[in-house]
């Protein structure tokens, strides 16, 4: 019932868009049906997959690096106060700011795009890793030592919820970097397609591109949530019990 209401409201908004598009004459708001029809002009193999592939590759590299570095720095307790401010500064650099320089250093290549996506996705995971590793229950480490297990065998599962929370933020940033890196100095990809459509006044195609981006964003978030729920089932259950 409530679900139906939500869909009804969404449908109503789409209808308003459609009617506005049909009656308006500015050409800036084409009817939604035109945008949907334009979806056919977007080739999944040449327009969508390269973008998605670069985003996923950069995300995977960034998250892996961030987790490794974050846990290592967090584990080396003495190191943390020395590197912390420098890390906080590097993390605070808005990733798009390095794009022009990255283009200069690496050229307008896929490798450059993957690099900037990875560099942007790394930080939320890295910082979460440092904080969570420092906060690992000392009792867990005692049990590991008395059981002759390596510390990492308890640190990794203990910090996993924090790493995944960081990765969730990293995912959003990876998508932003994917689009913006394709808007500057690119000849392919969804970001390029949208910008090009705008410049050539193919407004319906521009909206179609944005719809595809929205769907892509929705899809990766949904897959991420699925993986998260699977990997952290114990964590969610525990929270549920603690909360209720």
């Amino acid at each position: 019932m409530k679900r139906l209401l939500g869909l009804l409201v969404a449908a109503l908004l789409l209808l308003v868009w459609e009617v506005a598009g049909r009656t308006g004459d500015t050409g800036l708001f084409p009817p939604v049906s035109d945008a949907i029809a334009e979806l056919a002009s977007i080739d999944p193999w040449t327009d969508v997959l390269p973008s998605a592939g670069r985003a996923l590759a950069g995300f995977a590299i960034g998250v892996t690096l961030g987790a490794l570095l974050g846990v290592t720095i967090g584990w080396l307790r003495g190191l943390e106060p020395w590197v912390r401010p420098a890390l906080e500064f590097l993390r605070a650099v808005p990733p798009p700011a390095v794009l022009p320089v990255a283009v200069l250093a690496l050229g307008a290549t896929s490798g450059m795009r993957i690099t900037v996506i990875a560099a942007a996705a790394m930080w939320p995971v890295l910082i979460a890793g440092v904080d969570a590793t420092r906060a690992v229950e000392p009792g867990y480490l005692d049990v590991a030592r008395i059981s002759h297990a390596r510390p990492v065998s308890v640190i990794l599962p203990a910090v996993l919820p924090a790493l995944i929370a960081g990765a969730r933020i990293a995912l959003g940033i990876a998508l932003i970097m994917m689009v913006i890196s394709e808007m500057t100095a690119a000849t392919s990809g969804l970001g390029y397609l949208i910008l090009q459509a705008q410049r050539t006044y193919a407004i319906a195609q521009m909206y179609a591109g944005i719809i595809v981006l929205g769907l892509l964003g929705w899809l990766v978030t949904a897959v991420f949530s699925l993986v998260e729920r699977h990997v952290l089932s114990w964590y969610e259950d525990q929270k549920g019990i603690a909360g209720g």
């Binding site: 209401l5 409201v9 800036l28 932003i176 949208i194 705008q198 407004i203 944005i210 981006l213």
Partner: peptide, 25 residues
């Protein structure tokens, strides 16, 4: 309940994807 579906559709759109729209509009 009325707004969930709309929010869920708009939220995943990376804001930078809307740059061209904002420029046009």
């Amino acid at each position: 309940a009325a707004l969930t579906a709309t929010v869920d559709f708009l939220r995943p759109i990376p804001a930078v994807a809307l740059i061209p729209v904002a420029v046009v509009v």
